[in-house]
Design a protein around this nucleic acid. Structure first.
Lengths: 244, 244
DNA sequence: GGGCACTGTTGGTCTAGGCCAATTTCGGGA
DNA sequence: TCCCGAAATTGGCCTAGACCAACAGTGCCC
């Protein structure tokens, strides 16, 4: 059986989906028996929801439905999910796809030997049908044999990895820099040449430590921004005040 | 009495400070009585340390001292601390300081009425004595009466707030965008005009919800970047494998 | 009418113990 | 000697109950 607090967490998410922002959750002591768990377990579940930013606790007062999701900045792993959280509709168009032999530089990033085959897919990412980013995906050939650009048109790369190749991502590292668009990027993104843009580079790994992808994305600077909640030094979890 | 798990957390930090990377912590069932707490409380403390990235748990195997801190990007509240974490020496030079009457736009950000006095300080921030960012700080006059640009030369703004005005920050919101340098910024930062740059805008609040500062910072795009550890979907805390 | 102490409600922490699940260890068999 | 399976070890989850601390409303007192 999956962990009980995870199941309770989902039930809480269902519950608050029908509630107004600022409305109070029933007290923990009432909710726990209702879900059939101990209070500590309920609290554990609530903490998960708080971490997602959907609830807010106030000592002595109650637990309240938080305002609409505040972007949590940098944990971006999926364009689609990122866009949905921002309230726009994501879509994608493949511009180019094919195999190539890894250059020394690319080989180093992917931790393979130079010359090994690599699948390369260039995609235009759109938000509400307007260009948002150009994404260049590199996948070592042996990681996902048989995969091609076609498959990515209607399914998430990560889903394909999991379902067709049994690869589960374990984490990755992403760097975020600023850049300016070159001629090609400018044309694709429909912005002037040398417009400011975000440059993301991400390397993701599977559970066994093997590099699964190297992604380079250029985001339009005029349409994309981060919004981050800052917390003081250390301790606790949430901040900000507002009562119902 | 402060929370017991916080005290235990500090004791754990002391303990692992003398240990090698990869070395295993004593088992929870041994450590808990040693610290004189229940195992659950010890676990709570360990979770805090894990959140700071200093420990790593492996189900069935043990709890191990994690490798040196990996930059976590975003808990940035202070330029100085940010730079020190990046391994460079921060310094600061005040370029301009003075009082002005809040424009309607600024008043809205600071949540005061238009025309109220505001302290404005423009500072050049340096890393290893090379220009890194231009920071413009706005503080409502009534938040920190008597404060001026001079005071900021040799003390942290946040320390001054806490010590001289008893104001403790409770959190804030920061947006991160890309921009290009204008003539003035380019000159100060010693980069070409229209170089790409990060634009940070931060609004910080005290515990009572009052806005304490509005900061606008322009960071050199060629010297500053984020590096973020990504974690899969949801759940847990850590990733990566390596056994002792 | 205003302010303050009291009190009930609600979240925050802690305990002691039990059982489950992943991993490692170790002994016996081939 | 090598390998496999059982047993011990270790973290993960859950419980039921207790007490502490912050908050909000009430009503008394001035």
């Amino acid at each position: 059986m999956a962990a009980k607090y995870l199941s309770i967490r989902d039930q809480i998410l269902d519950l608050i989906a029908e509630m107004e922002v600022g409305e109070a959750l029933p007290p923990e002591r009432a909710l726990a028996p209702q879900f059939g768990v101990a209070r500590m377990t309920l609290r554990r579940a609530i903490e998960e929801v708080i971490r997602e930013g959907r609830l807010k606790r106030k000592h002595g007062a109650g637990t309240f439905v938080a305002g609409p999701k505040i972007a949590q900045g940098l944990a971006v792993t999926s364009f689609s999910e990122d866009m949905r959280q921002r309230g726009v509709v994501p879509s994608s168009r493949t511009l180019d796809a094919g195999e190539l032999a890894a250059s020394p530089k690319l080989a180093k990033r992917l931790e393979i030997t130079s010359g090994e085959p690599v699948l390369r897919v260039v995609r235009l990412r759109l938000a509400d049908d307007a260009p948002m980013a150009v994404e260049t995906l590199h996948v070592p050939g042996r990681v996902a044999p048989g995969l091609d650009g076609q498959a990515l048109d209607h399914a998430s790369f990560y889903e394909l990895l999991a379902e067709r190749h049994g690869i589960i991502l374990a984490g990755g590292v992403q760097t975020i820099e600023v850049t300016v668009t070159d001629d090609r990027e400018a044309e694709i993104l429909e912005v002037p040449v040398h417009s400011p843009a975000f440059l993301f580079e991400r390397v993701s790994r599977a559970r066994d430590g093997q590099v699964v992808e190297f992604v380079r994305s250029v985001y339009r600077g005029d349409r994309y921004q981060f919004r981050v909640d800052l917390q003081p030094a250390r301790a606790g979890s949430n901040l900000a005040d507002d009562a119902p």
